[in-house]
Deep mutational scan, measured.
Amino acid sequence: MAAAAAAGAGPEMVRGQVFDVGPRYTNLSYIGEGAYGMVCSAYDNVNKVRVAIKKISPFEHQTYCQRTLREIKILLRFRHENIIGINDIIRAPTIEQMKDVYIVQDLMETDLYKLLKTQHLSNDHICYFLYQILRGLKYIHSANVLHRDLKPSNLLLNTTCDLKICDFGLARVADPDHDHTGFLTEYVATRWYRAPEIMLNSKGYTKSIDIWSVGCILAEMLSNRPIFPGKHYLDQLNHILGILGSPSQEDLNCIINLKARNYLLSLPHKNKVPWNRLFPNADSKALDLLDKMLTFNPHKRIEVEQALAHPYLEQYYDPSDEPIAEAPFKFDMELDDLPKEKLKELIFEETARFQPGYRS
């Protein structure tokens, strides 16, 4: 834990890192770190609560700039109880001085990944967590956004079992017609939660990839272990087919990539493993919904509104309290091709509203 900075004593240090967030945020305490930044909790002297502050230093890398800009653009436009918001952003007053960006968010005690390492969940908890994931996802999908990296560590939890989806750095506007060349190379989302079509096709992607990830998360809540822990690309596919069985001819016809289709045709026939054999203690309604989410063919996979209306979630289902976005989200430009200098300018502009004396 960093010592509390005395008023006016300059930035606090946390594990050798400068955290320049005073005077409003003090009493910093280390939480963890990701690929390009550290997260601390801090005391907000204005709202009198502890908050989470993520320090991001992305400006050396085009990919990190892209992810940072995506996350900020999306989260500043989203407003939903099951999606983490941005409360404040701290950065230098000029673009030349801006080396880091500090993002202030609600402090959540833990995440689903940490929880599943230590606790076996009751059916009631599984049901409530799944409902909140789908409630947040309904809003995301209504904005025409794909999260693309749903996994237990991106689901934040607090002691009252509130759940918030975080990390929109890989999110995209849904565009089933656009052929994202190089899709697989830039697709760094965790393999275990990846839909089979991501490994088999490169053309376009749809909201059904997020539903697949939610199915993987439900299976993990039922058993405290990942359902498809593939060691590499082909191993991942083999794990999936080992449980779902061989795809039907109709399902194979959806695979545009001939090499991928021929690979699947070359494999020995596998039978589907019954879900109640894998999860003998699970609620039968939970397994019915799991089956509809972990469907090989993305066109037959359940959609988020149908999933919310499934009998497993009937005690929570309330369409009048499951809000959607006001308007579909649009990125003005494809960020993939922009140089990091341009992305830095866009991050600077996007964060201006939090600067003292800002006038829109």
Rank of each mutant, 00 (worst) to 15 (best):
E71R: 03
G357R: 11
P274R: 12
S41F: 13
A327M: 08
A3S: 14
A189S: 14
Y187Q: 03
K270W: 01
H232P: 10
P247L: 09
T110E: 09
L308M: 14
V273K: 02
N123A: 12
I103K: 12
N144L: 12
N262I: 15
I140R: 09
N158E: 08
H239C: 12
L241D: 09
A195I: 00
Q17T: 09
A219M: 01
A4R: 10
L76Q: 14
Q17G: 03
I31S: 09
R194L: 10
L278K: 11
V46E: 11
K54E: 14
Q119T: 02
E220K: 11
S223G: 12
L163W: 03
L335S: 08
S153A: 05
K259E: 00
N224K: 13
L289D: 01
Q355C: 09
Q236I: 01
R77Q: 12
H141W: 11
H141N: 15
E326V: 14
N158Y: 13
T190G: 10
K270Q: 04
I84D: 00
Y25Q: 01
Y25K: 04
I83N: 13
D318R: 02
S248A: 09
Y193K: 09
P226T: 14
D124T: 06
L222P: 07
P323E: 07
Y317S: 11
Q105N: 15
P298M: 10
E33F: 04
Q236S: 10
T94R: 09
S213M: 04
L115F: 00
S360Q: 13
S266G: 15
L28D: 00
V14G: 15
I243R: 00
M333F: 04
K207Y: 06
I256T: 02
P176K: 08
I90Q: 07
P229D: 03
L290I: 01
G215M: 06
A9V: 10
R70W: 02
H125P: 01
H147L: 14
Y131G: 03
K270I: 10
Q132T: 04
R67L: 07
R135P: 03
I165K: 07
L258Q: 15
Y139Q: 09
F78K: 04
R261Y: 07
P298C: 01
W192T: 08
I86D: 11
E341I: 02
C161H: 03
A9F: 00
Y317Q: 00
K270V: 04
K164G: 09
R50T: 13
V21A: 06
L338I: 06
N297Y: 15
N271K: 11
V14D: 15
A2F: 03
Y233H: 15
I89A: 01
K344C: 01
V173R: 10
P328W: 03
L130F: 00
P311M: 00
Y205F: 14
Y316A: 01
H232K: 02
V18M: 09
F354C: 09
L313W: 05
E345N: 08
G230L: 02
T159Y: 09
M333N: 04
K55W: 02
S41Y: 15
N238Q: 05
L241W: 13
D106N: 13
T110W: 05
T26C: 06
C166N: 07
R67W: 13
D175K: 08
E250R: 07
K138Y: 12
L338K: 11
Y131W: 01
A219C: 07
N87A: 01
L346M: 14
Q17E: 08
A282Q: 04
A282V: 07
L338W: 01
I255R: 02
F279L: 15
Y113L: 04
G34Q: 00
M221L: 15
R301D: 03
H141G: 12
L346Y: 09
Y312M: 06
R194M: 04
S266I: 11
I56K: 12
T160S: 15
Q66S: 11
Y128P: 02
L134Q: 14
I31F: 15
F168Q: 09
Y358G: 09
G357L: 11
R15L: 07
L308Q: 13
F329S: 03
L163P: 09
A352D: 11
T190I: 08
P311A: 06
E109F: 08
C40Y: 14
K231M: 14
K292V: 05
E109D: 15
I103W: 06
E197G: 00
H232E: 04
N262R: 07
V104R: 01
P11H: 15
A2I: 00
I209W: 11
P298T: 14
A42H: 12
D288R: 02
L115I: 00
L107T: 06
V51Q: 13
L75G: 13
L241R: 00
I165N: 15
